[in-house]
Structure formats: C-alpha cells, structure tokens
Computed example of a mutant assay.
Amino acid sequence: MAPTRLSGGGSMQGRVLLVEDDGELREVVATALRGEGYLVDEAVDGQRGLHLGLTRPYDVMLIDRKLPALDGLDLLARLQSRAVTARTLMLAPGGTVTERIEGLDAGADDYLVKPFHLGELSARVRALRRRASDGADALPIGRGFLDLVRRDAVLADGTRVTLSTREFTLLKLLASQPNTVHSRTQLRSRVFDEATAASIIDTYVYYLRRKLDRNVVKTVHGLGYRLGSL
C-alpha cells in the first residue's frame, strides 16, 4: 500500500495508538492517519504498547494481533484490566471466523484483516471515534465526578484535582462499579499487577483520601474497598 490521504477526514487532535511490528505497514498507516489530523503514537511491540496505553489517553487503539514481547490479545486484556476505555481495532493477518470471534471476545471493538484498504481503515477509525464520543465522559462520585477525558477528579465546588495515572485508574475502577466491594487482592491484580503485596492498595487509597476527601473510598472491614463520595 502506498501512503495516500484518507477520505472522510479525521478530527483534529484525535489521538491514536498504533501497535504494529511491521515497520513498512506501520509507517504507511501512521502517515495516512497523521495526514487526516490525528495525533499518532507508534509502538513496535506489545510491551511498548502497554506502556503507552497506560500512560497516555487515546481515542482509538490499533493493535496487531501478532506482536513480539506481548501478544495483541494479551495486550488488550491487560489494558482493559487497568480500566483503559479507548476503542480498539484489532489488525490481523488471518481472517478465520474463530480468530475473529477470539479477538472480539477479548474485548476488541472491531476486527480488520490484512491486507486492507486505507479507506476502510479510515472509516473504521472514524466509527470508533464516534462511539467513543457518544459514551459517557464522566463517572459520578457523590456530588463530584471523575473526568475521563482530562483524567482528573472534580469536587462538588468545581475544584479540579490532578491525579496520577495509578490514582486515576484505581478510582475509575471503583467508580465504574460503585456498588461493588473489591478485595485488596482483586484491586492489586487489576491495577498493580506487577506489585507483590496487596498493601500497595492501602497506600493509594490513602493518597486518594488525602487529595480528595476521606470519604472518597469506603473501607468495608474484612472485605475490602468500594466507592465512597465527594
């Protein structure tokens, strides 16, 4: 495929993560998307894609299924376990029904088989962006809320409080399931899977309470934590 300008037009400042180990294909897709006004970050393997996906907000992620270091399905699972909500288009060299089902069951929003036409890729990215913008951009926390776009917390009086990536991820997980009590072990595996001790959850609950309000996270004695209020 030669780099061409995609039809239809991407929205300026839309951010896309492209995780693709084929250098030629990655350059073609990235060049075309940038020509439409998207901000594109590139990753050559799953580990780099995981790092970018956890540290930067994206509208859409394009993930190759067959990646070095970390397979595309595993990458998607890890991102979703950390409450990353970007829409995902999985790119794959094979197009069997079973493979498509596996990709969609893993959490991908769409599935595109290689080789593909850039015009079709463009249309699918636009569709995923529309779906992302149609979704909720905030999660209520009592009289305040968690801003999913700016990735900060807003108090009842309108004050915005900056959160670290891990603080935001932990609070987002709690806010997305406000009536669920999560054990410390469950929260550690979903937010801090590299940590060996569940006590790291206590540390970040302390940080959130100190920054926001002591009631933002409720302790359920003997069970774990659940969302409180602002």
Results as ranks from 00 to 15, higher is better:
residue 18 L to R: 04
residue 203 T to D: 10
residue 220 V to C: 10
residue 180 T to P: 05
residue 223 L to F: 14
residue 2 A to F: 06
residue 20 E to V: 00
residue 76 L to C: 14
residue 155 L to H: 13
residue 189 S to V: 08
residue 174 L to F: 09
residue 108 A to Y: 01
residue 26 R to L: 00
residue 12 M to I: 01
residue 50 L to Q: 09
residue 100 R to I: 03
residue 222 G to S: 12
residue 131 R to E: 15
residue 68 P to E: 11
residue 53 G to H: 10
residue 125 V to D: 08
residue 190 R to C: 04
residue 198 A to P: 15
residue 182 H to N: 07
residue 164 S to D: 14
residue 151 R to Q: 08
residue 215 N to R: 15
residue 145 F to N: 08
residue 109 D to Q: 05
residue 1 M to P: 14
residue 17 L to D: 01
residue 158 G to Q: 11
residue 153 A to K: 01
residue 158 G to R: 05
residue 159 T to V: 06
residue 222 G to C: 05
residue 143 R to N: 14
residue 175 A to L: 08
residue 189 S to P: 04
residue 25 L to P: 02
residue 157 D to L: 01
residue 104 L to G: 02
residue 181 V to N: 05
residue 58 Y to C: 07
residue 110 D to R: 07
residue 200 I to V: 15
residue 39 L to D: 10
residue 127 A to H: 09
residue 15 R to P: 02
residue 203 T to H: 14
residue 123 A to K: 09
residue 83 A to D: 14
residue 228 G to N: 06
residue 12 M to Q: 10
residue 189 S to N: 13
residue 149 V to T: 14
residue 63 I to W: 11
residue 91 L to G: 01
residue 209 R to N: 13
residue 16 V to I: 13
residue 158 G to K: 10
residue 184 R to I: 02
residue 212 L to T: 02
residue 200 I to N: 12
residue 213 D to H: 15
residue 119 G to L: 10
residue 220 V to F: 12
residue 177 Q to L: 08
residue 85 T to W: 04
residue 102 E to D: 13
residue 104 L to T: 02
residue 82 R to P: 00
residue 159 T to W: 02
residue 79 L to R: 09
residue 57 P to V: 00
residue 52 L to D: 09
residue 149 V to S: 01
residue 120 E to H: 12
residue 78 R to N: 13
residue 67 L to F: 05
residue 163 L to W: 03
residue 4 T to H: 05
residue 152 D to Y: 00
residue 61 M to H: 08
residue 225 Y to F: 12
residue 5 R to M: 00
residue 104 L to Y: 09
residue 192 F to E: 11
residue 143 R to D: 14
residue 89 L to R: 06
residue 24 E to Y: 03
residue 34 R to M: 05
residue 52 L to W: 10
residue 54 L to A: 09
residue 122 S to N: 12
residue 99 E to F: 01
residue 101 I to P: 02
residue 148 L to K: 01
residue 155 L to T: 15
residue 76 L to G: 05
residue 150 R to W: 00
residue 128 L to A: 06
residue 51 H to G: 06
residue 82 R to S: 07
residue 214 R to M: 02
residue 30 A to F: 03
residue 155 L to Q: 15
residue 102 E to G: 00
residue 171 L to A: 04
residue 207 Y to E: 12
residue 163 L to G: 04
